[in-house]
Write a protein that binds this DNA or RNA. Structure first.
Lengths: 361, 361
DNA sequence: TCTTTTTACTAAAACGTTACAGTCTAAATC
DNA sequence: GATTTAGACTGTAACGTTTTAGTAAAAAGA
């Protein structure tokens, strides 16, 4: 759907208010921006006239242009925004960002568009913002390019290092390794992996080695790498370990993936999921099969979203500080906007949380 | 914290690209906006030169000013944004809005600030947007005024009708009445109510009749009204029914409120909560007291957030279509932006969902 | 060959502000 | 009484685009 701007009735301008009062435009401007530059009485009269003419104050677009300052930061998300709101981890991240923007009195502009839409680059390119937070984007996608080409202050989140831009993230690889090692330590030798989509094509199904290695999304690639290393170190073939990729990060997709994995021979006794959302779906698939967790199959997730500690059984997972990630990223960006130069990238702590969904093989 | 704009290095402009190439500014502009207006070859050369000069395309602020079109809508929220992200109902609402903005290729600007901050009106007044969605705001707050003064297309959500602006909401009063009647039908006569804050002061504690009647937030007022009517109709004194208001819509506040209510004499056998978040807290308080739900105390919520059907016992509540509310509001606004005039206000359906948390007195 | 159409480009005027450097008057200082 | 200072206001020039109306040359049509 295309949007045409409304041809609404004429709206009063600062100039007209000035003319009506017989003063200069500067004075009216000052009435709004520098009260000390004119007498109290005149200021009152300015506001009166403004109200009478239905003048709603200086136009933000003109002001932004003139001041070269938008008063907002852009948040660019990997996928459709509506998915972000459906993903507890992303919501927590945005919450963190919102804390930072509120501290700074800035707006938070959610830039629209999925990698599958054409208008996307234009959206990021056209955003009236002072800086970007780029969150978990396919690293070579057009969206990220569009954002970077603006050459605005930018903070990368869950992304590979790029052009010496400051970044915030966790040690995805190490964390993934830790979950896998935990399960190996419990004696498991037959694994199945439930993964995010590994490329921008929306495909669901088993992924070959090539596809796993060149996963488009940085966190996916690092996590798979962590699993792979741990398994190989434990004498388990990564190549023969099935990896089922899900087009979308919803529990239901995870359920389907787990169903597929459970039908394989030999049946995995441990399922590693790249997110809790997917792991929760896997839990359901196992239950529906009449199997029990963790007696028949162990399941581990990633993210430690609130639901992970409320499921039955409660989910073994990797805890990472989602809110803090957003907060850090937001503050870093604000610092850059304030002219502070060298922002250091940060790796936030994460750790394995063992709960009821994993047990001995 | 105040933000100063970064005094970054000079950034190339469209004019400079034009000068470098020896063509007019119009031509460069056309290269970006109307490819059919110049030859293929020149267009290519324009982009080359742009890249060489590190020109990132037309400046969005200038473009917005000239076109009188921001490409974004503003979402104004009642409270601190960070609370919105912590409230599942608000998140679902925003998800709905995001679907609508994505359909239209618009950005979604979250306007910062709580009613307790001074800079707020400036934030709404300075937002570079084409329209507003005003979500559940204290109806006479400065924020809503600031938004309305802009005289941009606006859609009200969960707000009292105002200035013939289109609105989206549910029948809060009727829904509240339905929950209360359900409990009365089960034989309850001793009620306690757990409410949101009833004024912009952040107070927690029992609220007198006056305060209940003039609650600042529209949904609170309507829901309390619904409870009141149902109780009075059932021969139960509303005045003597304790209403405990919570400063914030978090489960923990609900827990504290319920603790207070359970210490009263006579102890309520039914607790009505204005939201599921608060009701979930109440559930916990009752459990901590060693009482059982619904045997000793019944609890009903409002909103039917996902957690409501996962608690033990599962929560009796009012289901309302949060996502659809956002979607409707978003589409209404988009329609207005497209110049479609008469937008009808809409009352979305809601209904009582009876689950395990309510039972006979 | 002469008109008409098309193609490729340009000049100039907005869009609505704010920053900067002044100007002018009245009060304060010496 | 001359000089400085402060206060209140103004004029002009950006800010970086897009749009409108237009020109000149080339292509097409008669």
């Amino acid at each position: 759907m295309e949007v045409n701007r409304k041809v609404s009735g004429h709206r009063a301008t600062l100039k007209e208010v000035a003319a009506e009062l017989g003063v200069s435009a500067s004075t009216v401007s000052n009435a709004y921006n520098r009260p000390d530059q004119l007498s109290k009485e005149l200021r009152v009269r300015v506001f009166e006239t403004a109200r009478r003419l239905e003048y709603g104050g200086p136009d933000p677009m003109a002001r932004s242009l003139r001041r070269r300052w938008a008063g907002a930061i852009g948040v660019v998300y990997a996928d459709r925004l509506s998915y972000a709101f459906a993903d507890p981890a992303a919501v927590m991240f945005m919450q963190g960002v919102s804390v930072a923007t509120e501290e700074a009195g800035l707006g938070m502009l959610l830039v629209p568009g999925s990698p599958r839409q054409a208008r996307v680059p234009e959206a990021a390119g056209g955003a009236v913002v002072d800086g970007f937070i780029v969150y978990c984007l396919a690293e070579d996608g057009p969206l990220v390019d569009a954002a970077l080409e603006r050459r605005l202050p930018t903070v990368l989140v869950d992304q590979p290092p790029k052009e010496s831009l400051p970044a915030v993230g966790i040690d995805d690889e190490g964390a993934a390794r830790a979950v896998a090692e935990h399960l190996i330590g419990l004696g498991h030798t037959n694994f199945g992996v439930v993964s995010f989509g590994l490329d921008t094509d929306t495909r669901s199904g088993l992924a070959d080695l090539e596809r796993r290695r060149y996963a488009t999304y940085w966190p996916s690639r690092r996590r798979l790498r962590g699993y792979a290393d741990a398994l190989e170190d434990g004498g388990i073939s990564w190549e023969e370990t099935p990896v089922y990729e899900c087009a979308e990060n919803y529990p239901d997709e995870g359920r389907r993936a787990a169903e597929a994995l459970l039908s394989l021979e030999p049946r995995p006794t441990a399922i590693l999921a790249l997110s809790d959302q997917l792991a929760l779906g896997a839990l359901k698939a196992i239950e529906q099969r009449g199997l029990s967790v963790p007696k028949d199959v162990s399941v581990a997730g990633f993210d430690d979203i609130p639901e992970a500690s409320r499921s039955t059984p409660r989910l073994t997972t990797i805890r990472q500080p989602h809110v803090e990630k957003g907060l850090k990223a937001g503050r870093m960006l604000v610092a850059q906007l304030n002219g502070e130069e060298a922002q250091e990238s940060e790796i936030l702590p994460s750790r394995l949380v063992v709960r009821g969904s994993t047990g001995p093989a």
